[in-house]
């Protein structure tokens, strides 16, 4: 199994002010499968996604990627895991502002030591970024920036793509186009996809849909 989450619990804050976000969430995603995570604002979708990426640790429960338990990894190990096996796409794109598009695109692949120039070029072409490679993120439109972010996530050929509202900052037409492109590329690489969205319309375009409510999978 590509991704396996079991009995995940997570609270933020401590003492009386503590907010319980996740209380016993379990789910699985297989390679090549695309899963939509939906739920109300504050239902813990993003938190669950971050835990899956190894960006934070759950209070209880276990997450395994390709059978590797994240809880057994230290900071360095989790950083290596993110680098090597996971592609992240954020709602706010989160490109590196000081680097041009080409460097952003290849950033993670080079970090992981797996740069494939031909693949990067192909990605740039597929994402319609050929003419923008020398530009800086701030000179791009939102749709363009998100396409760079998707390219960055895919450039290292990760096993798992984690996307957090990837179209949330885009208008509907642009969002649909970007999502279509992403789904197409993900399925081509055979990676698994977990995508957080609050839109049922978008969720319907994925293989499977999980709904989070009250800190549990409904």
């Amino acid at each position: 199994m590509l991704l396996e989450a079991r009995d995940i619990e997570k609270s933020y804050g401590t003492g009386a002010g503590a907010v319980r976000v996740l209380s016993g969430v379990s789910f699985r995603a297989a390679a090549g499968e695309s899963v939509a995570l939906t739920g109300e604002s504050g239902s813990g979708k993003s938190t669950l996604l971050h835990l899956c990426a190894g960006l934070d640790r759950p209070d209880a429960g276990e997450i395994r990627i390709d059978g590797q338990a994240l809880g057994a990894l230290d900071d360095r190990g989790r950083a290596a895991l993110r680098r090597d096996r996971i592609g992240l796409v954020f709602q706010q794109f989160n490109l590196i502002p000081s680097l041009p598009v080409a460097a952003n695109l290849s950033f993670q692949a080079r970090l992981a030591g797996r740069q494939d120039a031909a693949w990067c070029a192909a990605l740039a072409e597929r994402l319609g970024l050929e003419g923008l490679l020398r530009r800086y993120p701030e000179q791009l439109s939102g749709g363009q920036q998100q396409r760079v972010a998707i390219g960055r996530a895919l450039a290292a050929r990760p096993r798992l793509i984690l996307a957090d509202e990837p179209t949330g900052n885009l208008d509907e037409a642009t969002g649909d186009a970007v999502l279509a492109l992403m789904l197409e590329l993900v399925s081509e690489t055979g990676a698994g996809l977990v995508m957080v969205t609050h839109s049922a319309r978008l969720a319907a375009r994925l293989d499977r849909r999980l709904h989070l409510s009250g800190g549990r999978i409904a």
């Binding site: 900071d75 290596a80 590196i96």
Partner: peptide, 13 residues
């Protein structure tokens, strides 16, 4: 905001 993505992409703090 400039450091977090780099961290997320696979660098330790």
């Amino acid at each position: 905001p400039q450091l977090a993505p780099v961290w997320a992409l696979g660098l330790t703090r």
